[in-house]
Design a binder for these strands. Sequence first.
RNA 1: GACCAUAUAGCGCAGUUGGUUAGCGCGUCGGCCUGUCAAGCCGAAGGUCGCGGGUUCGAGCCCCGUUAUGGUCGCCA
Length: 473
Amino acid sequence: MQKELKQDENISIDDLIPETASRYTQEDIKKVSNSYKNRDKNVNNRTLCVNLAKNIGKKVIIKGSVHKINSLGGIEFFALRDRSGMTQIVFEGSVVTQKICCEAIIEVEGLITKEERSPYDNIEIKGQSLKILGSAASDLPIAINGNYNNINLPTLLDYRGLSVRIPKVSKVFKIQSEILRLYGEYLRKNDFSEIKTSKIISTGTEGGANIFELKYFDRVAYLAQSPQFYKQTMVGSGFERVFEVGPVFRAEMSNTVRHLSEYTSMDLEMGFIKDEQDIIDMQENLLKYMFTEIKKLYGDEIKEEFGVDIVIPEVFPRIHFLEALDIAYKKGVKDMDGDISPEGEKAVCDYADKELGSPFVYIVGYPIKKRPMYTMPDERLPGYTRSFDLLYKGLEITTGGQRINDYETLRKNIIAFGGNPNSFKTYLDIFKYGMPPHGGLGMGLERVTMKMLGFNNVREASLFPRDIGRITP
RNA sequence: GACCAUAUAGCGCAGUUGGUUAGCGCGUCGGCCUGUCAAGCCGAAGGUCGCGGGUUCGAGCCCCGUUAUGGUCGCCA
Protein backbone atom coordinates (compact mmCIF):
# COMPACT_ATOMS: atom_id res chain seq x y z
CA MET A 1 0.00 0.00 0.00
CA GLN A 2 1.25 3.48 -0.88
CA LYS A 3 1.67 5.85 2.01
CA GLU A 4 0.37 9.38 1.75
CA LEU A 5 3.10 11.94 1.18
CA LYS A 6 3.81 14.31 4.01
CA GLN A 7 3.24 18.01 3.45
CA ASP A 8 6.97 18.82 3.07
CA GLU A 9 7.36 15.97 0.57
CA ASN A 10 4.95 17.66 -1.75
CA ILE A 11 7.59 19.03 -4.11
CA SER A 12 7.69 19.23 -7.88
CA ILE A 13 10.46 18.91 -10.42
CA ASP A 14 10.52 22.72 -10.79
CA ASP A 15 11.62 23.00 -7.16
CA LEU A 16 14.79 21.09 -8.10
CA ILE A 17 15.89 23.63 -10.70
CA PRO A 18 17.36 26.90 -9.40
CA GLU A 19 16.60 30.16 -11.15
CA THR A 20 20.30 30.51 -12.08
CA ALA A 21 19.94 27.47 -14.34
CA SER A 22 19.01 29.69 -17.27
CA ARG A 23 21.98 32.05 -16.76
CA TYR A 24 25.09 29.85 -16.91
CA THR A 25 27.94 31.54 -18.78
CA GLN A 26 30.15 29.99 -21.45
CA GLU A 27 32.85 29.95 -18.80
CA ASP A 28 30.72 27.99 -16.36
CA ILE A 29 30.00 25.39 -19.01
CA LYS A 30 33.60 25.26 -20.25
CA LYS A 31 34.81 24.52 -16.75
CA VAL A 32 32.65 21.43 -16.63
CA SER A 33 33.43 20.20 -20.13
CA ASN A 34 37.18 20.68 -19.59
CA SER A 35 36.97 18.47 -16.56
CA TYR A 36 35.96 15.57 -18.81
CA LYS A 37 39.38 15.61 -20.46
CA ASN A 38 41.51 16.58 -17.52
CA ARG A 39 40.02 14.38 -14.87
CA ASP A 40 42.32 12.56 -12.48
CA LYS A 41 41.78 8.88 -13.19
CA ASN A 42 43.58 7.84 -10.03
CA VAL A 43 41.08 9.54 -7.80
CA ASN A 44 38.91 6.47 -7.78
CA ASN A 45 41.65 3.91 -7.31
CA ARG A 46 40.34 1.27 -5.06
CA THR A 47 41.59 -2.09 -3.91
CA LEU A 48 39.17 -4.97 -3.98
CA CYS A 49 39.04 -7.52 -1.18
CA VAL A 50 40.27 -10.23 -3.50
CA ASN A 51 43.49 -8.30 -4.19
CA LEU A 52 44.48 -7.59 -0.60
CA ALA A 53 46.75 -10.61 -0.18
CA LYS A 54 49.18 -9.44 -2.83
CA ASN A 55 49.43 -5.96 -1.35
CA ILE A 56 50.27 -6.70 2.26
CA GLY A 57 52.03 -3.79 3.93
CA LYS A 58 50.56 -1.24 1.54
CA LYS A 59 48.27 1.61 2.35
CA VAL A 60 45.10 1.29 0.28
CA ILE A 61 41.60 2.60 -0.17
CA ILE A 62 38.82 0.06 -0.03
CA LYS A 63 35.15 0.65 -0.63
CA GLY A 64 32.13 -1.48 0.03
CA SER A 65 29.18 -2.31 2.28
CA VAL A 66 29.40 -2.71 6.01
CA HIS A 67 28.51 -6.36 6.38
CA LYS A 68 28.86 -6.62 10.12
CA ILE A 69 30.09 -4.58 13.07
CA ASN A 70 31.60 -5.89 16.27
CA SER A 71 32.23 -3.10 18.69
CA LEU A 72 34.33 -3.85 21.77
CA GLY A 73 34.56 -0.37 23.18
CA GLY A 74 38.03 0.80 22.33
CA ILE A 75 38.31 -1.44 19.29
CA GLU A 76 35.84 -1.99 16.47
CA PHE A 77 35.77 -4.71 13.84
CA PHE A 78 33.99 -4.10 10.56
CA ALA A 79 33.38 -6.84 8.03
CA LEU A 80 33.39 -5.13 4.65
CA ARG A 81 31.81 -6.61 1.54
CA ASP A 82 32.59 -5.67 -2.03
CA ARG A 83 31.88 -7.39 -5.32
CA SER A 84 34.95 -9.58 -4.95
CA GLY A 85 34.52 -10.79 -1.40
CA MET A 86 34.95 -9.74 2.19
CA THR A 87 37.60 -8.48 4.53
CA GLN A 88 37.96 -7.17 8.05
CA ILE A 89 38.78 -3.63 9.01
CA VAL A 90 39.96 -2.80 12.50
CA PHE A 91 39.50 0.62 13.97
CA GLU A 92 41.32 1.58 17.14
CA GLY A 93 41.09 4.86 18.93
CA SER A 94 38.64 7.40 17.64
CA VAL A 95 38.61 6.89 13.87
CA VAL A 96 34.93 6.04 13.85
CA THR A 97 33.13 9.10 15.06
CA GLN A 98 29.76 8.78 13.34
CA LYS A 99 27.01 6.25 13.92
CA ILE A 100 27.36 3.58 11.24
CA CYS A 101 24.82 0.86 10.56
CA CYS A 102 25.09 -2.41 8.71
CA GLU A 103 24.83 -2.00 4.93
CA ALA A 104 26.19 1.55 4.99
CA ILE A 105 28.51 2.17 2.07
CA ILE A 106 31.92 3.26 3.29
CA GLU A 107 35.33 4.19 2.00
CA VAL A 108 38.26 3.36 4.23
CA GLU A 109 41.91 4.23 3.98
CA GLY A 110 44.15 1.83 5.85
CA LEU A 111 47.11 -0.45 6.02
CA ILE A 112 46.86 -4.06 4.82
CA THR A 113 48.26 -6.24 7.56
CA LYS A 114 48.97 -9.92 8.00
CA GLU A 115 46.97 -10.83 11.10
CA GLU A 116 46.48 -14.36 12.36
CA ARG A 117 43.44 -13.33 14.36
CA SER A 118 41.48 -12.12 11.34
CA PRO A 119 38.79 -14.48 10.06
CA TYR A 120 39.32 -13.39 6.46
CA ASP A 121 42.44 -15.05 5.04
CA ASN A 122 44.45 -13.90 8.06
CA ILE A 123 44.48 -10.46 6.52
CA GLU A 124 42.96 -7.31 7.90
CA ILE A 125 43.05 -3.61 7.34
CA LYS A 126 44.08 -1.19 10.04
CA GLY A 127 41.61 1.58 9.38
CA GLN A 128 43.04 5.06 9.43
CA SER A 129 40.17 7.09 8.07
CA LEU A 130 36.59 6.44 7.19
CA LYS A 131 34.12 8.15 4.92
CA ILE A 132 30.44 7.34 4.44
CA LEU A 133 29.52 7.17 0.76
CA GLY A 134 25.97 6.04 1.40
CA SER A 135 24.34 5.92 4.79
CA ALA A 136 22.04 3.13 5.89
CA ALA A 137 19.15 3.07 8.35
CA SER A 138 19.28 0.62 11.23
CA ASP A 139 15.92 -1.01 10.69
CA LEU A 140 16.89 -3.57 8.06
CA PRO A 141 13.87 -5.85 7.56
CA ILE A 142 16.01 -8.91 6.87
CA ALA A 143 19.50 -9.79 8.02
CA ILE A 144 22.09 -9.61 5.26
CA ASN A 145 24.80 -11.06 7.49
CA GLY A 146 22.77 -13.69 9.29
CA ASN A 147 21.76 -17.22 8.59
CA TYR A 148 20.09 -17.44 5.22
CA ASN A 149 17.95 -20.33 6.42
CA ASN A 150 16.27 -18.16 9.03
CA ILE A 151 14.32 -16.35 6.34
CA ASN A 152 11.43 -17.93 4.47
CA LEU A 153 11.42 -17.80 0.69
CA PRO A 154 8.37 -15.48 0.40
CA THR A 155 10.12 -13.04 2.74
CA LEU A 156 13.33 -13.24 0.72
CA LEU A 157 11.30 -12.51 -2.39
CA ASP A 158 9.27 -9.72 -0.81
CA TYR A 159 12.54 -8.00 0.08
CA ARG A 160 14.36 -9.10 -3.06
CA GLY A 161 16.15 -5.81 -3.46
CA LEU A 162 17.84 -6.49 -0.14
CA SER A 163 18.01 -10.27 -0.13
CA VAL A 164 20.18 -10.26 -3.26
CA ARG A 165 22.83 -8.68 -1.05
CA ILE A 166 23.09 -11.85 1.03
CA PRO A 167 26.32 -13.40 -0.23
CA LYS A 168 24.79 -16.83 -0.62
CA VAL A 169 21.91 -15.40 -2.64
CA SER A 170 24.09 -13.31 -4.90
CA LYS A 171 26.29 -16.36 -5.44
CA VAL A 172 23.31 -18.08 -7.08
CA PHE A 173 23.05 -15.34 -9.64
CA LYS A 174 26.79 -15.11 -10.21
CA ILE A 175 26.65 -18.79 -11.11
CA GLN A 176 23.58 -18.22 -13.27
CA SER A 177 25.46 -15.48 -15.08
CA GLU A 178 28.22 -17.99 -15.84
CA ILE A 179 25.70 -20.52 -17.09
CA LEU A 180 24.47 -17.93 -19.56
CA ARG A 181 27.99 -17.01 -20.63
CA LEU A 182 29.01 -20.64 -21.16
CA TYR A 183 25.86 -21.44 -23.08
CA GLY A 184 26.56 -18.72 -25.61
CA GLU A 185 30.29 -19.37 -25.62
CA TYR A 186 29.94 -23.03 -26.58
CA LEU A 187 27.35 -22.41 -29.24
CA ARG A 188 29.34 -19.62 -30.86
CA LYS A 189 32.33 -21.94 -31.00
CA ASN A 190 30.07 -24.31 -32.89
CA ASP A 191 29.02 -21.81 -35.51
CA PHE A 192 25.76 -20.72 -33.94
CA SER A 193 24.64 -17.10 -34.28
CA GLU A 194 22.81 -15.40 -31.48
CA ILE A 195 19.48 -13.89 -32.40
CA LYS A 196 16.93 -11.78 -30.57
CA THR A 197 13.32 -12.07 -31.66
CA SER A 198 10.19 -10.21 -30.71
CA LYS A 199 8.25 -11.18 -27.63
CA ILE A 200 5.14 -9.39 -28.83
CA ILE A 201 3.26 -11.61 -31.21
CA SER A 202 -0.11 -11.75 -32.92
CA THR A 203 -0.88 -15.46 -32.51
CA GLY A 204 0.22 -18.20 -30.17
CA THR A 205 2.76 -20.70 -31.45
CA GLU A 206 1.89 -23.68 -29.36
CA GLY A 207 -1.78 -22.94 -29.04
CA GLY A 208 -3.56 -23.46 -25.77
CA ALA A 209 -4.97 -21.10 -23.23
CA ASN A 210 -1.70 -20.37 -21.45
CA ILE A 211 -0.98 -17.18 -23.31
CA PHE A 212 -0.89 -13.64 -21.94
CA GLU A 213 -2.97 -11.09 -23.78
CA LEU A 214 -2.00 -7.46 -23.95
CA LYS A 215 -3.27 -4.23 -25.38
CA TYR A 216 -1.32 -3.25 -28.49
CA PHE A 217 -2.50 0.19 -29.64
CA ASP A 218 -5.99 -0.55 -30.94
CA ARG A 219 -5.45 -4.28 -31.27
CA VAL A 220 -4.87 -7.34 -29.13
CA ALA A 221 -1.42 -8.90 -29.02
CA TYR A 222 0.15 -11.71 -27.03
CA LEU A 223 3.37 -12.34 -25.15
CA ALA A 224 5.49 -15.01 -26.80
CA GLN A 225 5.45 -18.45 -25.20
CA SER A 226 8.47 -19.49 -27.23
CA PRO A 227 10.65 -18.14 -30.06
CA GLN A 228 9.91 -21.34 -31.98
CA PHE A 229 8.73 -19.94 -35.31
CA TYR A 230 11.41 -17.25 -35.43
CA LYS A 231 14.20 -19.71 -34.67
CA GLN A 232 13.03 -21.94 -37.50
CA THR A 233 12.73 -18.97 -39.81
CA MET A 234 16.37 -18.11 -39.14
CA VAL A 235 17.50 -21.67 -39.76
CA GLY A 236 15.87 -21.29 -43.15
CA SER A 237 17.48 -17.87 -43.62
CA GLY A 238 20.86 -19.43 -44.18
CA PHE A 239 22.12 -18.87 -40.65
CA GLU A 240 21.56 -22.64 -40.28
CA ARG A 241 22.46 -22.56 -36.60
CA VAL A 242 20.92 -20.03 -34.24
CA PHE A 243 20.42 -19.64 -30.54
CA GLU A 244 18.43 -17.23 -28.45
CA VAL A 245 18.35 -16.45 -24.77
CA GLY A 246 15.30 -14.52 -23.77
CA PRO A 247 12.15 -14.31 -21.72
CA VAL A 248 9.12 -16.41 -22.50
CA PHE A 249 5.71 -16.11 -20.94
CA ARG A 250 3.32 -18.80 -19.78
CA ALA A 251 -0.06 -17.93 -18.34
CA GLU A 252 -0.44 -21.31 -16.74
CA MET A 253 -2.58 -21.65 -13.63
CA SER A 254 0.18 -23.71 -12.11
CA ASN A 255 1.21 -22.77 -8.64
CA THR A 256 4.09 -25.15 -8.14
CA VAL A 257 7.74 -25.17 -7.11
CA ARG A 258 8.82 -25.50 -10.72
CA HIS A 259 6.63 -23.02 -12.63
CA LEU A 260 7.20 -19.37 -13.40
CA SER A 261 4.91 -17.16 -15.45
CA GLU A 262 7.99 -15.60 -17.01
CA TYR A 263 11.22 -17.50 -17.38
CA THR A 264 14.42 -17.34 -19.39
CA SER A 265 14.49 -19.78 -22.25
CA MET A 266 17.81 -20.89 -23.69
CA ASP A 267 16.80 -21.92 -27.18
CA LEU A 268 18.72 -23.30 -30.09
CA GLU A 269 17.80 -24.53 -33.54
CA MET A 270 20.03 -26.13 -36.17
CA GLY A 271 19.71 -27.19 -39.78
CA PHE A 272 21.06 -30.09 -41.83
CA ILE A 273 20.62 -32.70 -39.15
CA LYS A 274 20.02 -36.37 -39.79
CA ASP A 275 17.52 -36.70 -36.97
CA GLU A 276 16.81 -35.73 -33.38
CA GLN A 277 19.91 -37.57 -32.17
CA ASP A 278 22.07 -34.82 -33.69
CA ILE A 279 20.28 -32.28 -31.52
CA ILE A 280 20.80 -34.44 -28.47
CA ASP A 281 24.49 -34.86 -29.31
CA MET A 282 24.86 -31.11 -29.56
CA GLN A 283 23.12 -30.53 -26.24
CA GLU A 284 24.94 -33.31 -24.47
CA ASN A 285 28.29 -31.80 -25.42
CA LEU A 286 27.04 -28.33 -24.64
CA LEU A 287 25.94 -29.36 -21.15
CA LYS A 288 29.14 -31.25 -20.49
CA TYR A 289 31.07 -28.11 -21.38
CA MET A 290 28.89 -25.84 -19.28
CA PHE A 291 28.81 -28.09 -16.24
CA THR A 292 32.53 -28.86 -16.40
CA GLU A 293 33.38 -25.17 -16.51
CA ILE A 294 30.97 -24.34 -13.68
CA LYS A 295 32.47 -27.11 -11.64
CA LYS A 296 35.96 -25.75 -12.25
CA LEU A 297 34.94 -22.23 -11.29
CA TYR A 298 32.48 -22.87 -8.48
CA GLY A 299 32.53 -26.59 -7.66
CA ASP A 300 34.05 -26.16 -4.20
CA GLU A 301 31.84 -23.24 -3.27
CA ILE A 302 28.74 -25.05 -4.49
CA LYS A 303 29.69 -28.07 -2.43
CA GLU A 304 30.34 -25.96 0.63
CA GLU A 305 27.44 -23.51 0.40
CA PHE A 306 24.70 -25.61 -1.17
CA GLY A 307 25.92 -29.06 -0.23
CA VAL A 308 25.71 -30.57 -3.71
CA ASP A 309 28.25 -32.15 -6.02
CA ILE A 310 28.10 -31.41 -9.71
CA VAL A 311 28.02 -34.79 -11.41
CA ILE A 312 28.83 -34.91 -15.11
CA PRO A 313 28.28 -38.40 -16.57
CA GLU A 314 30.35 -39.83 -19.41
CA VAL A 315 27.20 -40.40 -21.43
CA PHE A 316 23.72 -39.04 -20.92
CA PRO A 317 21.38 -42.05 -21.20
CA ARG A 318 18.79 -41.93 -24.00
CA ILE A 319 15.68 -43.99 -23.39
CA HIS A 320 12.67 -44.35 -25.65
CA PHE A 321 9.41 -43.07 -24.26
CA LEU A 322 7.90 -46.58 -24.28
CA GLU A 323 10.93 -47.95 -22.44
CA ALA A 324 10.60 -45.16 -19.89
CA LEU A 325 6.95 -46.07 -19.37
CA ASP A 326 8.01 -49.64 -18.78
CA ILE A 327 10.65 -48.64 -16.26
CA ALA A 328 8.12 -46.52 -14.41
CA TYR A 329 5.56 -49.37 -14.37
CA LYS A 330 8.18 -51.77 -13.08
CA LYS A 331 8.99 -49.28 -10.32
CA GLY A 332 5.33 -49.46 -9.35
CA VAL A 333 4.07 -46.17 -10.77
CA LYS A 334 0.41 -46.59 -11.69
CA ASP A 335 -2.29 -44.63 -13.49
CA MET A 336 -0.20 -43.31 -16.31
CA ASP A 337 -2.69 -44.14 -19.06
CA GLY A 338 -0.13 -44.29 -21.85
CA ASP A 339 1.52 -41.06 -20.72
CA ILE A 340 4.36 -40.58 -18.34
CA SER A 341 3.40 -38.79 -15.12
CA PRO A 342 5.76 -36.61 -13.08
CA GLU A 343 5.90 -39.51 -10.67
CA GLY A 344 6.88 -41.73 -13.58
CA GLU A 345 9.54 -39.23 -14.62
CA LYS A 346 10.98 -39.37 -11.13
CA ALA A 347 11.07 -43.15 -11.36
CA VAL A 348 12.96 -42.96 -14.64
CA CYS A 349 15.39 -40.44 -13.17
CA ASP A 350 15.85 -42.68 -10.20
CA TYR A 351 16.64 -45.55 -12.57
CA ALA A 352 19.11 -43.44 -14.56
CA ASP A 353 20.78 -42.24 -11.39
CA LYS A 354 21.05 -45.63 -9.67
CA GLU A 355 21.56 -47.99 -12.62
CA LEU A 356 23.34 -45.71 -15.08
CA GLY A 357 25.03 -43.24 -12.75
CA SER A 358 23.59 -40.19 -14.49
CA PRO A 359 21.55 -37.34 -13.02
CA PHE A 360 20.54 -36.59 -16.62
CA VAL A 361 18.32 -38.75 -18.79
CA TYR A 362 16.81 -38.20 -22.21
CA ILE A 363 13.36 -39.56 -22.90
CA VAL A 364 12.99 -39.76 -26.67
CA GLY A 365 9.99 -40.46 -28.88
CA TYR A 366 6.95 -38.88 -27.24
CA PRO A 367 3.53 -39.66 -28.67
CA ILE A 368 2.21 -37.36 -31.39
CA LYS A 369 -0.64 -36.19 -29.17
CA LYS A 370 1.76 -34.96 -26.51
CA ARG A 371 3.74 -32.72 -28.86
CA PRO A 372 3.15 -29.59 -30.92
CA MET A 373 2.01 -29.80 -34.52
CA TYR A 374 5.46 -29.07 -35.99
CA THR A 375 7.05 -32.17 -34.41
CA MET A 376 8.59 -34.72 -36.79
CA PRO A 377 6.85 -38.11 -36.61
CA ASP A 378 9.01 -41.23 -36.30
CA GLU A 379 8.29 -43.38 -39.37
CA ARG A 380 9.70 -46.45 -37.54
CA LEU A 381 7.10 -46.23 -34.75
CA PRO A 382 4.03 -44.54 -36.23
CA GLY A 383 2.13 -42.57 -33.59
CA TYR A 384 5.35 -41.49 -31.95
CA THR A 385 7.67 -38.60 -32.73
CA ARG A 386 11.32 -37.66 -33.02
CA SER A 387 11.10 -35.45 -29.99
CA PHE A 388 12.66 -35.63 -26.57
CA ASP A 389 12.73 -34.26 -23.05
CA LEU A 390 15.80 -33.98 -20.92
CA LEU A 391 15.25 -34.71 -17.25
CA TYR A 392 17.77 -33.54 -14.68
CA LYS A 393 17.48 -34.71 -11.09
CA GLY A 394 13.83 -35.56 -11.61
CA LEU A 395 12.81 -32.38 -13.40
CA GLU A 396 12.18 -31.63 -17.04
CA ILE A 397 14.73 -28.99 -18.05
CA THR A 398 14.47 -29.28 -21.81
CA THR A 399 12.03 -30.11 -24.57
CA GLY A 400 13.25 -30.51 -28.11
CA GLY A 401 13.16 -32.53 -31.25
CA GLN A 402 13.34 -32.72 -34.98
CA ARG A 403 10.79 -30.53 -36.75
CA ILE A 404 8.77 -31.24 -39.84
CA ASN A 405 10.49 -29.52 -42.78
CA ASP A 406 8.15 -30.57 -45.59
CA TYR A 407 5.52 -27.99 -46.49
CA GLU A 408 2.64 -30.38 -47.26
CA THR A 409 3.22 -32.51 -44.17
CA LEU A 410 3.29 -29.44 -41.97
CA ARG A 411 0.17 -27.99 -43.59
CA LYS A 412 -1.75 -31.19 -43.01
CA ASN A 413 -0.51 -31.37 -39.43
CA ILE A 414 -1.75 -27.86 -38.72
CA ILE A 415 -5.19 -28.93 -39.90
CA ALA A 416 -5.03 -32.20 -37.99
CA PHE A 417 -4.22 -30.27 -34.82
CA GLY A 418 -7.30 -28.11 -35.34
CA GLY A 419 -5.54 -25.05 -36.76
CA ASN A 420 -6.17 -23.01 -39.86
CA PRO A 421 -3.26 -22.99 -42.38
CA ASN A 422 -4.26 -19.48 -43.48
CA SER A 423 -3.41 -18.04 -40.10
CA PHE A 424 0.02 -19.69 -40.29
CA LYS A 425 0.82 -18.35 -43.75
CA THR A 426 4.05 -16.52 -42.84
CA TYR A 427 5.28 -19.58 -41.01
CA LEU A 428 4.23 -22.02 -43.73
CA ASP A 429 5.87 -19.93 -46.44
CA ILE A 430 9.33 -20.66 -45.07
CA PHE A 431 8.63 -24.34 -45.67
CA LYS A 432 7.04 -23.80 -49.03
CA TYR A 433 10.24 -22.20 -50.29
CA GLY A 434 12.88 -24.62 -49.07
CA MET A 435 13.70 -25.63 -45.52
CA PRO A 436 16.52 -27.98 -44.47
CA PRO A 437 15.94 -30.90 -42.12
CA HIS A 438 16.30 -29.29 -38.75
CA GLY A 439 15.48 -29.36 -35.08
CA GLY A 440 16.19 -27.67 -31.82
CA LEU A 441 15.34 -27.32 -28.19
CA GLY A 442 14.49 -24.99 -25.36
CA MET A 443 16.09 -25.16 -21.94
CA GLY A 444 14.78 -23.38 -18.85
CA LEU A 445 17.56 -21.32 -17.28
CA GLU A 446 15.98 -21.15 -13.84
CA ARG A 447 15.26 -24.85 -13.77
CA VAL A 448 18.84 -25.68 -14.72
CA THR A 449 20.15 -23.35 -12.02
CA MET A 450 17.68 -24.68 -9.47
CA LYS A 451 18.63 -28.31 -9.99
CA MET A 452 22.33 -27.65 -10.32
CA LEU A 453 22.32 -26.02 -6.88
CA GLY A 454 19.87 -28.47 -5.36
CA PHE A 455 17.02 -26.03 -4.62
CA ASN A 456 13.52 -27.31 -4.29
CA ASN A 457 11.86 -24.12 -5.50
CA VAL A 458 12.56 -22.58 -8.90
CA ARG A 459 11.85 -19.12 -7.44
CA GLU A 460 15.16 -19.31 -5.60
CA ALA A 461 16.86 -19.38 -8.99
CA SER A 462 14.97 -16.37 -10.32
CA LEU A 463 16.01 -12.82 -9.47
CA PHE A 464 12.54 -11.35 -9.69
CA PRO A 465 10.17 -14.28 -10.10
CA ARG A 466 6.75 -13.90 -11.63
CA ASP A 467 4.09 -16.40 -10.70
CA ILE A 468 0.33 -16.52 -10.30
CA GLY A 469 0.48 -14.56 -7.08
CA ARG A 470 3.52 -12.34 -7.59
CA ILE A 471 4.25 -9.46 -9.92
CA THR A 472 6.39 -7.47 -7.47
CA PRO A 473 9.09 -6.60 -6.78
C1' G B 1 -8.45 -24.50 -11.66
C1' A B 2 -9.01 -28.74 -7.65
C1' C B 3 -7.31 -30.53 -2.92
C1' C B 4 -4.38 -30.05 1.74
C1' A B 5 -1.81 -26.99 5.23
C1' U B 6 -0.35 -22.42 7.45
C1' A B 7 -1.15 -17.11 9.16
C1' U B 8 1.36 -14.74 16.62
C1' A B 9 7.01 -8.44 17.27
C1' G B 10 11.53 -6.36 11.78
C1' C B 11 13.20 -11.93 10.91
C1' G B 12 12.66 -17.23 12.61
C1' C B 13 9.37 -19.58 15.96
C1' A B 14 6.68 -21.46 20.85
C1' G B 15 1.97 -20.72 23.03
C1' U B 16 -0.95 -27.04 27.12
C1' U B 17 -8.13 -29.54 27.71
C1' G B 18 -10.51 -22.03 26.04
C1' G B 19 -8.69 -18.87 31.87
C1' U B 20 -4.79 -13.05 34.90
C1' U B 21 -0.33 -8.60 32.05
C1' A B 22 0.79 -13.43 24.89
C1' G B 23 6.49 -15.68 25.32
C1' C B 24 11.65 -17.41 23.25
C1' G B 25 16.01 -16.69 19.87
C1' C B 26 18.08 -13.22 16.45
C1' G B 27 17.89 -8.18 15.15
C1' U B 28 17.05 -2.92 16.86
C1' C B 29 17.91 1.05 20.77
C1' G B 30 20.88 2.59 25.43
C1' G B 31 25.16 1.30 28.79
C1' C B 32 30.01 -1.45 29.86
C1' C B 33 34.06 -3.68 27.30
C1' U B 34 41.09 -3.24 22.94
C1' G B 35 40.91 -9.24 19.25
C1' U B 36 35.79 -9.72 17.67
C1' C B 37 34.87 -13.97 14.15
C1' A B 38 27.03 -17.12 16.31
C1' A B 39 31.44 -11.78 20.65
C1' G B 40 30.13 -11.22 25.99
C1' C B 41 27.55 -8.81 30.18
C1' C B 42 23.52 -5.24 31.95
C1' G B 43 19.08 -2.64 30.59
C1' A B 44 14.98 -1.09 27.14
C1' A B 45 11.59 -0.57 23.23
C1' G B 46 8.74 -3.33 19.94
C1' G B 47 2.04 -7.15 19.13
C1' U B 48 -5.46 -4.81 16.68
C1' C B 49 -2.39 -12.91 17.48
C1' G B 50 -4.09 -11.87 8.71
C1' C B 51 -9.20 -9.71 8.27
C1' G B 52 -14.73 -10.07 9.33
C1' G B 53 -18.43 -12.40 11.99
C1' G B 54 -20.09 -16.17 15.62
C1' U B 55 -20.08 -19.54 20.21
C1' U B 56 -18.72 -18.48 25.44
C1' C B 57 -18.77 -15.34 31.80
C1' G B 58 -14.07 -15.45 29.03
C1' A B 59 -11.06 -16.82 22.35
C1' G B 60 -4.16 -16.53 19.94
C1' C B 61 -6.71 -21.45 20.81
C1' C B 62 -13.46 -23.62 19.04
C1' C B 63 -17.09 -22.61 14.56
C1' C B 64 -18.35 -19.96 9.79
C1' G B 65 -16.72 -16.71 6.04
C1' U B 66 -12.76 -14.13 3.65
C1' U B 67 -7.79 -12.82 2.09
C1' A B 68 -2.77 -14.00 1.72
C1' U B 69 1.11 -17.54 1.74
C1' G B 70 3.13 -22.50 1.23
C1' G B 71 2.62 -27.46 -0.79
C1' U B 72 0.40 -31.45 -3.99
C1' C B 73 -2.15 -32.51 -8.67
C1' G B 74 -3.42 -31.43 -13.78
C1' C B 75 0.09 -28.92 -17.14
C1' C B 76 4.87 -27.59 -18.22
C1' A B 77 10.91 -25.50 -19.41
